[in-house]
Simulated scan of single mutants.
Amino acid sequence: MRALQRQWPEARITWVIGKSEHSLLAGLSGVEFVVYDKTTGLTGMRALWRELADTRFDVLLHMQQALRASVLSLGLKADIRVGYDKARAKDAQRWFTHRQLPPHPRAHVLESFLDFARLLGVEDLSLVWDLPLPKAAFEEAKSITGEVPYLLISPCSSIRLRNFRNWSAEGYAAVIEHAWRQHGLITVLTGGGSTREREMGERIKALGPDDDVVIDVIGETSLKGLLALVDGARAVIAPDSGPVHMANALNNPVVGLYATSNLRRTGPYLWQEYAVDAYPEAVRTYMHKEPADLPWGQRVRHPDAMSLIRAEDVIERLEAVLALPKTPQDMESPDEA
């Protein structure tokens, strides 16, 4: 979106967005948001179609690979509908588009998004996010952490069927102990309000150094507040989940934990070299194959895969990001660096 705005500053950009995602991105400059509540089903789709009934778009970028999104797109008027190429399209998306992206084998998800800008002729693909952080978000974060330097850990990924992306409470506790003993960093635990996430927070605290070292706000922050906490952290540690990409967009040091999903496809784009990457080992151990032999994006659906990540591996990466200069690095892709 930022690349499109640089190319055509006067272009009108409408973003059809989910309700929870909008709570994170509200206030993004130069965008008209149309919020769709996924829980409302066809009723919500019809309401959205009525809202945009008098609008015809030059181009519809079909960037969400889900059948629900494809059905929703049918009620929008557009001269050209652009979707993914055959190899990347899912849920029969190609039946809902006029134009497909050129093939881009083994692309990172971020690069796949940028392919839409490339197809439209955009040349400047500099990585700029400019995420809006209101004063209230910073105040929310400060009310939690005060002026004390801290490490932020979001220990759980989203709840999905056979989603084995979470590391162990014991592992996190060892990292928390190290951050406190060696660097004087307290740890802030964040995440959603599910029972599983709250229980994980309780287990981590029980294993941690003492009550003053860990601040557990799992399920208690707004998304903007979480973004502000990410922004103020000395470093962020999380599995394959939203917070690693929040940190990436804010160019804040992040250690991603990857074993069941391919770091090269979904890892924090600017911080891949600092991630713990046990995916190749997990593929060999639990699938008895080489990563290069798998379809791009293939997950390792084994409950023990994340146990391949050792606490000392995470601590090593944490030490590496904490040793980095505090001046922001240039926003350039790994291929250009």
Results as ranks from 00 to 15, higher is better:
Y269W: 05
A69N: 08
H98D: 15
A259D: 10
G225Y: 07
E111S: 12
S158E: 10
R94D: 03
D58E: 13
T145Q: 07
G242T: 08
G297D: 03
R50D: 13
K77Q: 15
I315Y: 00
G184T: 05
I204P: 01
Q182C: 00
N248A: 11
H183Q: 00
R162P: 03
I80K: 13
M1H: 10
I237L: 09
V71P: 05
V244S: 01
A47H: 14
E273P: 02
L308H: 02
S20K: 15
R299Y: 11
M63C: 07
T97K: 08
A47R: 14
S168M: 12
L263D: 12
L114S: 07
D115P: 02
A311D: 04
P325K: 12
R56S: 13
A228I: 07
D330W: 13
D85Y: 07
T285F: 10
T39P: 03
Q5T: 12
L110C: 04
L189G: 04
G30S: 04
S241L: 08
L119W: 05
Y258E: 01
L4M: 08
L294R: 01
R50Q: 15
V214C: 04
K205W: 01
T195V: 06
R68N: 01
K38V: 11
W49I: 07
A320F: 10
S241Y: 05
R56E: 12
L48P: 11
E197Y: 02
D216P: 00
G225K: 07
S157L: 00
R118K: 15
L101Y: 07
V254F: 04
A53Q: 13
L60R: 06
G232Q: 10
D85P: 12
R160H: 15
R118V: 13
D130N: 15
V109G: 02
P268C: 10
H245I: 11
Q65I: 08
L318E: 02
Q7L: 12
T327L: 14
R94P: 01
L270S: 11
I204W: 01
M200C: 05
V35K: 09
Y36L: 13
T327S: 15
T40L: 15
P155L: 02
E197M: 00
D130F: 10
V217R: 15
A117L: 04
R68F: 02
T195I: 07
P149E: 06
L114G: 07
P155C: 02
L125R: 11
G225I: 11
R284K: 13
R299H: 12
K38H: 12
L223Y: 13
H104P: 01
E220T: 06
Y172D: 01
S126Y: 09
N251P: 01
H183Y: 14
T145R: 14
S23P: 00
V255G: 03
R310D: 05
M1C: 13
